[in-house]
């Protein structure tokens, strides 16, 4: 019964969260904290912190985290599947329409306008993340004291290496984790 409730809750989260992770946050909170009381608000904020530091989209992280607490490993699986089932079906439907009509000139035109728009969206999200990492939660400021210098130097060094030698990004992420981790622990 509780498995069914989990499935139904995360099915709704998956179906209604348009616009990525941040858009899903209020929906998740509504379902797991307010409606069902599966975790407390404090645990929910911890969950967001953990989600920021671990791989994967927040929706899946929340599904697995809450699922395990409520019903063990089966709960985690059921909640995760519930969360991805609606988008999986919708996305396949959309891509079939896209493949069928993509050669029409109007559709081609629409896509030629959508592509630069998507690039703009990605740039905006990237800048948001960059500001969060370099300045923290208070946001961008011209005051040098609020800039995280360790993060800034790691970021600049990583970017130079990436632009110049084009290594696999995974190495950059792991490398800055090791170097940065050591610096943060020593400071």
């Amino acid at each position: 019964m509780v498995l069914l409730k989990l499935f139904w809750s995360f099915l709704q989260i998956g179906l209604l969260s348009f616009g990525g992770g941040m858009a899903a946050l209020p929906l998740i909170q509504n379902q797991v904290v307010d409606l069902h009381g599966w975790i407390t608000l404090k645990e929910y904020t911890d969950l967001i912190t953990i989600a920021e530091m671990t791989p994967g989209p927040i929706g899946i992280n929340a599904a697995a985290f809450v699922g395990v607490r409520i019903a063990g490993v089966p709960g985690s699986i059921i909640a995760t599947v519930g969360c991805v089932l609606p988008p999986f079906l919708i996305v396949l439907l959309l891509v079939r329409l896209y493949l069928k009509y993509k050669n029409l000139s109007a559709v081609q035109g629409a896509l030629s306008g959508i592509r630069p728009a998507v690039t703009g969206l990605i740039a905006s999200a990237a800048l948001t993340i960059l500001i969060l990492i370099l300045w923290g939660e208070n946001g961008f400021s011209t005051n040098l004291e609020s800039l995280n210098f360790v993060a800034f130097i790691l970021f600049a060094a990583s970017l130079i290496v990436l632009r110049k030698w084009k290594p696999n990004p995974i190495f950059i992420i792991l490398g800055s984790g090791i170097v940065g981790g050591a610096i943060y622990l020593l400071l």
């Binding site: 993340i129 960059l130 800034f152 970021f155 950059i172 992420i173 800055s176 981790g181 050591a182």
Partner: peptide, 9 residues
């Protein structure tokens, strides 16, 4: 530390 690398990527 990893976050700074992610930002660069």
């Amino acid at each position: 530390g990893m976050q700074a690398g992610v930002a660069a990527v």
